Amino acid sequence: MTSGLPAQQIPPTEIRQGVVRLARRLSSERPADGLSLNKSSVLAHLLRNGPMSAGALAAADHQQPQSLTRVFAELEREGLIVRSRDDHDGRQRVLELTEKGRETLVHDMARRDAWLDIALSDLTETERQVLLLAARLMTRLADSPARHAESPAP
């Protein structure tokens, strides 16, 4: 157990492994006809943050706008998002979640949330509160500015 150790002595490997394993488990609970990870991520950003430009959305998802161009087009074709003029800058276009997009995202997340709800029921109240705190901290970590560590020697 690593509790009580200074930050420099906490091995990031254990945290990374736990996050990756949970992400894979949640992914396995995704419905076969569910949204791709990119599509659900885009819709979730729009649900949380409201209308956003393609560039702002890509930056929030730590991706290049070009890598999401096809995803945006597919979501728009499926009626899950719409593009409209920015109220503040008429030259700018923003992506906005449609009601169908919101419903699709909620349905897509429901199965994973149901599995997680069952898994959480096996934990104590204290453990659930620790996980809630950890989730908030992981969100902060994910949103922190990129700082690249020196590459380890081979």
Rank of each mutant, 00 (worst) to 15 (best):
M1L: 01
M1F: 05
T2Q: 13
S3M: 14
S3K: 12
A7L: 15
A7F: 07
A7M: 02
Q9H: 09
Q9T: 02
I10N: 02
P11R: 09
T13G: 06
E14M: 11
R16K: 07
R16P: 00
Q17P: 00
Q17M: 11
G18I: 02
L22F: 10
A23E: 05
A23N: 05
R25K: 08
S27L: 08
E29M: 02
P31D: 03
D33F: 03
G34S: 10
G34D: 09
L35S: 02
L35W: 00
S36K: 09
S36T: 15
L37M: 04
S40H: 08
S40C: 06
S41V: 02
V42E: 06
V42A: 07
L43S: 01
A44C: 03
A44N: 09
H45G: 04
L46W: 09
L47C: 00
R48V: 07
R48E: 12
G50F: 07
G50Q: 01
P51C: 10
S53C: 10
G55E: 13
G55R: 12
G55N: 14
A56Q: 15
A56H: 11
A60F: 06
H62C: 03
Q63S: 14
Q64W: 07
Q64D: 15
P65I: 08
P65K: 03
Q66A: 13
S67I: 04
T69N: 03
T69S: 06
T69Y: 01
T69R: 06
V71M: 01
F72W: 12
F72A: 04
F72C: 02
A73V: 08
E76R: 15
E78T: 02
E78A: 05
E78P: 00
G79D: 01
L80V: 01
I81N: 05
I81T: 14
I81E: 04
R83I: 05
R83C: 01
S84I: 08
S84T: 13
D86V: 07
D87K: 12
H88G: 07
D89F: 05
R91F: 13
Q92C: 06
L95S: 14
E96S: 15
K100G: 04
G101M: 04
G101V: 05
R102L: 07
R102S: 05
E103T: 12
L105D: 03
L105I: 11
L105R: 10
V106F: 04
V106P: 00
D108G: 07
D108Q: 01
M109A: 15
A110G: 00
R111K: 11
R112Q: 13
R112T: 05
D113M: 10
D113L: 11
A114M: 04
A114V: 03
W115E: 03
W115P: 04
L116D: 00
D117I: 05
D117R: 14
I118V: 15
A119R: 01
L120M: 14
L120V: 08
L120T: 02
S121K: 02
D122W: 05
D122P: 00
D122Y: 11
T124W: 04
T126D: 14
T126I: 04
R128P: 07
V130L: 15
L133P: 07
L133Q: 13
A134V: 13
R136D: 09
L137W: 10
L137A: 11
T139S: 10
L141V: 14
A142P: 08
D143Q: 15
S144C: 06
S144Y: 01
S144D: 14
A146P: 06
A146T: 14
R147G: 01
E150L: 11
E150P: 03
A153P: 06
